[in-house]
Deep mutational scan, measured.
Amino acid sequence: MPSETPQAEVGPTGCPHRSGPHSAKGSLEKGSPEDKEAKEPLWIRPDAPSRCTWQLGRPASESPHHHTAPAKSPKILPDILKKIGDTPMVRINKIGKKFGLKCELLAKCEFFNAGGSVKDRISLRMIEDAERDGTLKPGDTIIEPTSGNTGIGLALAAAVRGYRCIIVMPEKMSSEKVDVLRALGAEIVRTPTNARFDSPESHVGVAWRLKNEIPNSHILDQYRNASNPLAHYDTTADEILQQCDGKLDMLVASVGTGGTITGIARKLKEKCPGCRIIGVDPEGSILAEPEELNQTEQTTYEVEGIGYDFIPTVLDRTVVDKWFKSNDEEAFTFARMLIAQEGLLCGGSAGSTVAVAVKAAQELQEGQRCVVILPDSVRNYMTKFLSDRWMLQKGFLKEEDLTEKKPWWWHLRVQELGLSAPLTVLPTITCGHTIEILREKGFDQAPVVDEAGVILGMVTLGNMLSSLLAGKVQPSDQVGKVIYKQFKQIRLTDTLGRLSHILEMDHFALVV
Rank of each mutant, 00 (worst) to 15 (best):
residue 237 A to I: 01
residue 207 A to Y: 00
residue 98 K to H: 10
residue 38 A to E: 10
residue 169 M to T: 07
residue 17 H to Q: 13
residue 27 S to P: 04
residue 141 T to G: 06
residue 21 P to M: 10
residue 108 K to T: 01
residue 51 R to G: 07
residue 23 S to Q: 10
residue 236 T to L: 09
residue 83 K to I: 11
residue 133 D to L: 11
residue 43 W to S: 06
residue 244 C to P: 05
residue 218 H to G: 01
residue 11 G to W: 07
residue 160 V to I: 12
residue 206 V to K: 04
residue 255 V to P: 06
residue 115 G to P: 07
residue 150 T to Y: 02
residue 150 T to V: 04
residue 240 I to S: 00
residue 131 E to F: 02
residue 235 T to I: 12
residue 237 A to F: 04
residue 85 G to C: 06
residue 123 S to Y: 06
residue 206 V to R: 01
residue 268 L to E: 00
residue 71 A to G: 13
residue 180 V to F: 02
residue 70 P to R: 10
residue 136 L to D: 00
residue 33 P to K: 04
residue 100 G to T: 04
residue 157 A to M: 09
residue 265 A to N: 08
residue 93 N to T: 08
residue 91 R to Y: 15
residue 14 G to Y: 11
residue 209 R to E: 12
residue 160 V to C: 07
residue 179 D to M: 01
residue 133 D to A: 06
residue 13 T to E: 08
residue 228 N to T: 03
residue 42 L to F: 10
residue 218 H to V: 12
residue 195 A to P: 03
residue 95 I to E: 00
residue 46 P to L: 02
residue 235 T to G: 11
residue 38 A to N: 09
residue 242 Q to I: 12
residue 64 P to R: 05
residue 249 D to C: 01
residue 138 P to W: 09
residue 164 R to I: 03
residue 259 G to R: 00
residue 89 M to C: 08
residue 33 P to S: 11
residue 83 K to H: 10
residue 87 T to N: 06
residue 186 A to E: 05
residue 232 H to T: 03
residue 87 T to S: 07
residue 38 A to R: 09
residue 243 Q to G: 02
residue 60 A to H: 11
residue 271 K to Y: 08
residue 123 S to F: 05
residue 248 L to P: 06
residue 25 K to M: 10
residue 113 N to Q: 07
residue 127 I to L: 11
residue 145 P to C: 06
residue 273 P to W: 14
residue 162 G to I: 05
residue 219 I to K: 01
residue 140 D to F: 08
residue 56 L to G: 04
residue 191 T to R: 00
residue 86 D to A: 11
residue 134 G to F: 06
residue 48 A to S: 13
residue 226 A to K: 10
residue 239 E to I: 05
residue 121 R to H: 02
residue 144 E to K: 06
residue 200 P to V: 09
residue 213 E to K: 12
residue 169 M to S: 01
residue 94 K to R: 12
residue 213 E to F: 11
residue 106 L to V: 11
residue 129 D to E: 13
residue 199 S to V: 03
residue 210 L to V: 05
residue 35 D to N: 15
residue 182 R to G: 11
residue 192 P to G: 05
residue 116 G to T: 07
residue 190 R to H: 06
residue 12 P to L: 01
residue 30 K to T: 10
